[in-house]
Design a protein around this nucleic acid. Sequence first.
DNA 1: CCAGTTAAACTGACCAGTCAGTACAAATAA
DNA 2: TTATTTGTACTGACTGGTCAGTTTAACTGG
Lengths: 196, 196
Amino acid sequence: MSPRPGRTDVTKRKLFDATLRLAGTRGMVGLTVDEIAAEAGVAKGTVYYNFGSKDGLIDALLRYGVDLLAARLSSADGDASDTLSRLIDGMLAFFAEYPTFAQLLVSELWRTPGQWQQTLSLLREQVTSIIRGQLQRLADAGELPEGVAVPTASAALFGTVLVVALDWQVFAPERSQEEVRDSVLTLVRGLRGTVG
Amino acid sequence: MSPRPGRTDVTKRKLFDATLRLAGTRGMVGLTVDEIAAEAGVAKGTVYYNFGSKDGLIDALLRYGVDLLAARLSSADGDASDTLSRLIDGMLAFFAEYPTFAQLLVSELWRTPGQWQQTLSLLREQVTSIIRGQLQRLADAGELPEGVAVPTASAALFGTVLVVALDWQVFAPERSQEEVRDSVLTLVRGLRGTVG
DNA sequence: CCAGTTAAACTGACCAGTCAGTACAAATAA
DNA sequence: TTATTTGTACTGACTGGTCAGTTTAACTGG
């Protein structure tokens, strides 16, 4: 699709990073293009040359971030017995590495019609379908109790880990990732059909 | 202090309602005072007369909403065995009744320093402390398995129900409250130390 | 050459906040 | 009872600033 990598990829990456660096405190609305460009060490016009608009930039950023997350989750394969643990760890690690992306997701994902709603619905589907696949493997292995609807559980698990990760960063940053992961595991222990 | 009740309470209520009516689609930032005033059938100046600033209005709205939620949760008393069910039902019912308030919470609560962060921290504490109290009753009754940290579980439960409620409204509005409640119960079944 | 980038000035819409003035009810005076 | 004052609530035109997006002319590295 793209014959020459070109310099634009580097520039785009710089803009993504800069935007994530800034979006945490101020949110996506109320974040100026001038600011983003300055933070990225790039001229304002470059933003418009590469993305066409502020919306275009954010749209591309969301896709970029979700691709990263999806890559992590897909590689959570392995023994069925600790699939859940790997899945949660993968999400937590990602959200710990890109905290502002988690904030971005949570603050935009459930906005009815909102401007990036269409993109976000696609991205939500992309992520939950991976989780669904992993959970289905558990179900096939008989590791899930009766009556657990896999699609519902997937969406709930995604949302739960998302907010728990944010709560961790914002209100209890001193806790370790292991502690947090174990807390989530405890909470969803019912899924595994065992009581530890 | 105030000999006459005055009209302001009615006006404030009108502004709260109008804001909630609008905040769902556009979020809090990127929502204009002119719009809110128009929706409430009130002049722009009235907003400033009553709340001093846009921030003041939102601040007051958040407190108003959380008071309503807290009232619901506090009344979730009763038999220890279905405390969890009542708690979840109460939250779901509230979020179903004030869907935009849930969106407001989720999109603002985890913004680092953000403008209403201080208010929101207080409100989060107010709500989770109630949940904490209810869960503690369960723990005292020996209904929680060993190793469950009540404060952590409370925060996680709150976040989980919040996102599940939003997911329900945005992505699966055809499901009934009972279905959703049962899904959450299944998910957190581990907390009760029983498997069905 | 030329795709990508830069710096700077500019436009036009939009919007938070202001302020002089209106409406009206209760308190007080005549 | 009627007239006058006072305080509270509200109004909406206006201001000053901000910001997305545009335009242009010049620069740079491959």
